[in-house]
Amino acid sequence: MPTSIDVRVAQKPDVRALARVLGRAFFDDPVMRWMLPDDARRARALPRVFGAMARHHFLAGGAVQVASRAGEVGAAALWDPPGRWKHTPREEWRMMPSFLLAMGRHVGRGMGMTELMKEHHPEEPHWYLAVIGSDLEVRGSGFGQVLMRSRLDRCDAEGAPAYLESTKESNVPYYMRFGFEVTGEITMPDGGPTMWQMWRQPV
């Protein structure tokens, strides 16, 4: 693994940088394209959405991580510790203004997707990888690998399983290399895209 990539727990001052990175990483994501079909709107909306998620939910769990090289954030991961994947009503209330501003008339589609994911979410205690992505400028240079390995090492040390939903079928083999296995599929309504549910037992 590249030794020049540093992984650390993110703090509030990191939110702007990590939101920008995740926005760029998910610009061509099938689910995001389905939620926000207009390219220009999606480019503006995604950093705002990821920023609100990090600021109002994930940071409180202490499990947001960023991978940096020479001080520049190149990748980020939004994890939930065991037992914390459900958003509280207060968190949802605090995120909603940003979601409405970012998504406009498409916000209902996003809320429907979230409810569908909740219905299929496993109840067994686990670490939940909600989002992971690397900036296009550093993709393929090991940022995602180092970031993923850092948290999975902790999962193994704790004897805890991990769960994610892959929004791209092409990413499924990548996650399988880390020990994840496909356990199900979630298909969005009205001809929407599919997510692949993936579970990893600790080793």
Rank of each mutant, 00 (worst) to 15 (best):
M1V: 13
D6V: 14
A10V: 11
A10L: 07
Q11R: 13
Q11K: 14
K12F: 06
P13I: 07
D14F: 01
R16N: 04
A19I: 04
R20E: 10
L22Y: 02
R24W: 00
A25H: 06
D29V: 02
M32G: 00
M32D: 07
R33G: 08
R33L: 12
R33V: 15
R33D: 07
M35Q: 10
M35A: 14
L36I: 15
P37I: 07
D38M: 05
A40I: 14
R42I: 09
R42W: 05
R44H: 13
A45I: 11
A45R: 11
L46M: 13
P47Y: 08
V49C: 06
H56L: 09
H57T: 10
H57N: 03
F58Y: 15
L59C: 04
A60T: 11
A63T: 13
V64Q: 02
V66A: 02
R69V: 14
R69Q: 15
A70C: 07
V73N: 01
G74H: 03
G74P: 08
P82K: 02
R84Q: 10
K86F: 01
T88P: 08
R90E: 15
E91G: 06
E91S: 14
E92G: 15
W93L: 15
R94M: 15
M95I: 13
M95F: 07
M95Y: 07
M96G: 02
M96I: 05
S98H: 14
S98F: 11
F99L: 15
A102K: 04
G104Y: 06
H106G: 06
G108C: 08
R109N: 11
E119N: 04
H120K: 11
H120M: 05
H120R: 14
W127T: 03
W127E: 00
Y128C: 02
A130H: 10
A130D: 11
V131K: 01
V131E: 04
I132F: 01
G133M: 03
R139G: 00
S141A: 06
F143R: 01
G144L: 05
L147P: 12
M148T: 13
R149W: 00
S150W: 10
R151T: 10
D153W: 00
C155L: 02
C155T: 14
A157C: 03
E158F: 04
A160E: 06
P161R: 03
S166L: 02
T167C: 02
E169A: 15
N171W: 12
V172C: 09
M176G: 15
F178A: 08
F178Y: 13
F180G: 06
F180N: 03
V182W: 00
V182C: 03
T183C: 13
T183D: 07
E185Y: 12
E185W: 05
I186M: 08
I186D: 00
D190W: 10
G191E: 14
G192N: 11
M195H: 14
W196N: 03
Q197W: 00
W199C: 03
R200L: 06
R200T: 10
P202W: 06
V203W: 00
V203S: 12
